[in-house]
Design a protein around this nucleic acid. Structure first.
Lengths: 229, 229
DNA sequence: ACCTGAACACCGTTCAAGT
DNA sequence: ACCTGAACACCGTTCAAGT
């Protein structure tokens, strides 16, 4: 066996200016989407870029600043619906579905976003759009603000729930174990749960359908009437 | 200066059986609530217990198993309303508010819970109760399942949003910076946002009020009628 | 059986140095 | 200016050893 071939050959010095913020953010997002947020490491990022660990620090202050920038960039890719064509409720629905889509397509980035406040021009535009639609739908100022936050909370919560649920179900045989556990429950202690077991499993494995069910309910409840229940 | 007093005096050997799973979980929850989830460390936990780092491993397989047990224990403290006294919608409301309360009172534990599936007897009982109430309210099996998931998603999402938002606002001067940023936005690019700035700031700093606003909307929309929008 | 410290393979980041 | 490796203070966990 030849010992002369080292496992990690001494990387030749990276050419000057081959690195830049954009390349770094691209690599970060790739890493995040492919391997999940706990695999997002400064060392891993540098390796992905074919560069020494500390090279990245010439372009960003640290990991936090990179996470921030990735979150920013993602938010700015949300496409707002054309507008004007449909009624406010339908447009609000489209906006929320768009945000949900983005979050489920970039599961690990969602965890970054949940940590930091929403800023960046496109995120601001999104909030403005939603508030405008809520006012158009006839909500008073305070109601529009509350409704907006509620919609965001539901959307973020659903996306988070969904990505974590689906990651858990990816585990070896997890789906069968869940099914078995449900089947083993005593029917008389948990009558409703046992009776609805198949529907529950189904609702949990649906993705967008489940989200839209709740979203429609929420929109109906928030916009439907001014009557307090 | 005397060198003979070491910074960390050689801790005397902990008495046998002074450690047990309950004491460990107590310490873990204390640590979690006091210092946040990223301060929850095997080394810190052992220190809190006045014991060598590895002592904990005699009682739990590792950090993950402890996190699991803490989450379990928390879920089992949720109190279900007496039942039978009120209509299904009011009872559902109480259950959700109870879950939300638990989550906001133990912010860091929520992050643990978001990661793992809900199990444990009391968590199961909670799900059963909610499903039963939803059926009582007149929902078909598939609708009850969907509605249950939607309610949980909204509740978890709100709690998560809230704890993170409030943690961010705890930062030095963060509240003022947010206010200033809102005030600096161009009125004609973001008309709705600028107009609703005070209401938004208010909705975001309310805790339970904001949650209940959306919850009532969601319940109204899910239970209000069978009409699909 | 229960508790111990040393050691291993990680992590983000500081530092002084190379080009 | 941009990129480098060594080093520091952390982390969870394995291991062989003490009692």
């Amino acid at each position: 066996m030849s010992v002369s071939q080292p496992v990690r050959p001494p990387r030749r010095r990276a050419p000057r200016n081959s690195l830049n913020p954009d390349r770094i953010l691209d690599a970060a997002l790739t890493l995040l989407d492919r391997d999940g947020s706990e695999a997002f490491t400064m060392r891993g990022l540098a390796q992905q870029l074919g560069v020494g660990t500390m090279a990245v620090y010439s372009h960003f202050r640290g990991k936090d600043e990179i996470s921030d920038a990735v979150a920013q960039r993602l938010l700015d890719t949300i496409e707002l619906p054309a507008g004007g064509s449909a009624d406010p409720q339908t447009e609000l629905r489209e906006v929320c579905v768009g945000v949900y889509r983005l979050f489920t397509e970039h599961p690990s980035a969602l965890e970054l976003l949940a940590d930091r406040p929403l800023r960046g021009d496109d995120a601001i535009a999104l909030i403005d759009r939603m508030l405008g639609l809520l006012r158009q739908a006839g909500l008073a100022p305070a109601d529009a603000a509350h409704a907006h936050v509620a919609l965001m909370q539901y959307t973020v919560g659903s996306a988070l729930w969904n990505t974590r649920r689906s990651r858990a179900l990816c585990q070896e045989g997890a789906r069968d174990r869940a099914r078995a556990k449900l089947a083993a429950l005593p029917r008389d202690t948990y009558p409703a749960l046992v009776a609805l077991a198949p529907e529950l499993l189904c609702a949990n494995s649906e993705g967008t359908g489940q989200f839209e069910y709740g979203l429609d309910g929420l929109l109906r409840g928030l916009l439907g009437g001014t009557a307090q229940v």
